[in-house]
Computed example of a mutant assay.
Amino acid sequence: MDDGPRGATGYVDGFLIPVLPDRKEAYFAMARKASPMFQEHGATRIVEAWGDDVPAGQVTDFYRAVHAEDRENIVFSWVEWPDKTARDAGMKRITADERMKTPPAEMPFDGKRMIFGGFTPILDQ
């Protein structure tokens, strides 16, 4: 999923998420539902990417980073914002949004193993 225009990005939230292959569609259904809400609250672009060439490393890798269990794949995701101020205000509104109060009947991933962080771009071409 790649939802939103490409362009200059002032701030990025990045995510690594372990997801079982049989939960892939449930995960992307959840992402498709959340994407418009993020855009309503100021995000300019949301990308959800299913790993298809994610090698196992000798010391560390994406799987180890999220403590992936047997058969889990990696989702690499990011949300682009105009700037950090817009992101901070948008995330505050998102967490208060009533639509966030009702999670899916069954979460398609283990949120305790999701890795996330905010980043200021140093190169955006």
Rank of each mutant, 00 (worst) to 15 (best):
A96Q: 12
A105R: 13
A26I: 07
D97G: 09
P18G: 04
K24P: 05
G90L: 04
M114F: 00
F28W: 03
I122C: 01
G118K: 02
R45D: 09
T60R: 10
F76R: 02
I46K: 10
P36V: 07
K101E: 10
A8F: 08
K92S: 12
R23E: 15
V54Y: 00
A105W: 04
S35Y: 04
F76S: 12
P103I: 11
A8L: 10
E106V: 15
P5R: 14
D13M: 06
G117M: 03
G42F: 07
A26Q: 09
A31W: 03
E69L: 14
D3I: 15
K24C: 07
F28V: 12
T85P: 03
A56N: 12
S77V: 09
W78M: 13
D88Y: 04
P21W: 00
D83M: 08
P36D: 04
D22R: 05
G42Y: 08
P5Q: 15
A26C: 03
M100A: 12
V12S: 00
M107L: 15
Q125L: 05
K101P: 07
K101N: 14
A29P: 00
D124N: 12
A8I: 10
F109L: 07
M114D: 02
I94Y: 07
I74W: 00
G57N: 10
D3V: 15
F109Y: 15
D13K: 04
G7F: 04
V66K: 01
M107W: 10
D70N: 11
E106K: 15
D22L: 02
F116R: 10
F62H: 13
P104S: 14
P18L: 02
A31P: 02
R113E: 02
D13F: 01
M107K: 11
D110A: 09
T102R: 14
A49E: 09
A29H: 03
I46F: 08
V75F: 00
E25K: 09
L16H: 01
A105Y: 08
E98Y: 05
D83H: 05
D13C: 03
K33H: 14
D124K: 02
R113C: 04
G4W: 09
T60S: 13
D83Q: 06
Y11S: 08
T102C: 07
F28Q: 03
D124R: 01
T9Y: 01
D61L: 11
L16N: 01
D83C: 07
P103D: 09
T95A: 11
D52L: 13
Y63R: 02
S35T: 15
H41S: 05
K92F: 06
M100G: 08
D22S: 13
K24T: 09
T102H: 13
